[in-house]
Nucleic acid binder design. Sequence first.
DNA 1: TTTTTATACATAAGAATCTTAGGTATATTT
DNA 2: AAATATACCTAAGATTCTTATGTATAAAAA
Lengths: 112, 112
Amino acid sequence: MNDNSQLFKGTLTTVVLKLLNDNKKMYGYEITRKVKELTNGNIQLTEGALYPALHKLEADGLIESSIELAGNRQRKYYHLTKTGKKEIKLKLADFSSFIADIQNILNLKPSL
Amino acid sequence: MNDNSQLFKGTLTTVVLKLLNDNKKMYGYEITRKVKELTNGNIQLTEGALYPALHKLEADGLIESSIELAGNRQRKYYHLTKTGKKEIKLKLADFSSFIADIQNILNLKPSL
DNA sequence: TTTTTATACATAAGAATCTTAGGTATATTT
DNA sequence: AAATATACCTAAGATTCTTATGTATAAAAA
């Protein structure tokens, strides 16, 4: 992760759930590539952060996994559960509120 | 802190430096009130997070303190150092970049 | 063809940052 | 008189991350 890693804390699960919401199913390594692609290389998700986060989301019933094979190589695909679909809506709303609040303190440009 | 506490993580020092940048000098308790006021009560800074953060910022040379008395009660006022003034500019730029990146993933409304 | 890089999963030690809980003291409001 | 607000502080524990490491297959480069 880059110098914004401190800021990225707390958004990891929201990001994962949102990507799974938009892409139906994804595997871990794919998620790291997608985040890098969408942020022009600015955010590099570390696997040490991602995999435990995925395991926790699954333990909490927000996502489910299924193993698929690509040649001899295993991929563990994740998809949202019904609970996960509800949760991402809440998390996006929370994030919006947070940005509005922080905007009141930091006075950033509206384009941000 | 509220349910957005997870999101607020990592922004604490940015918020503190920005408030000191805008208000010249503030004391700890005043900072907690100001954050609450600016966020319509949504963000309640806990003292267990704030005071250690202030001490670290001072140890790092970004802020300096001076004790003043209000009646018999002590207030520890903080102000930015020259280094701190440079740092808050960097931190605001970092935060803007972060928001832009996260926006690419979460697809929030532009007004956010 | 050997080595490096990319893909793909995972865990564990340690660091950083926060919450929760407590402590001390003065001032004001109920 | 008691409760709340102001004002500082620390410490234990929880959470979440970084860094480092491990395993294995596939592809690219040397």
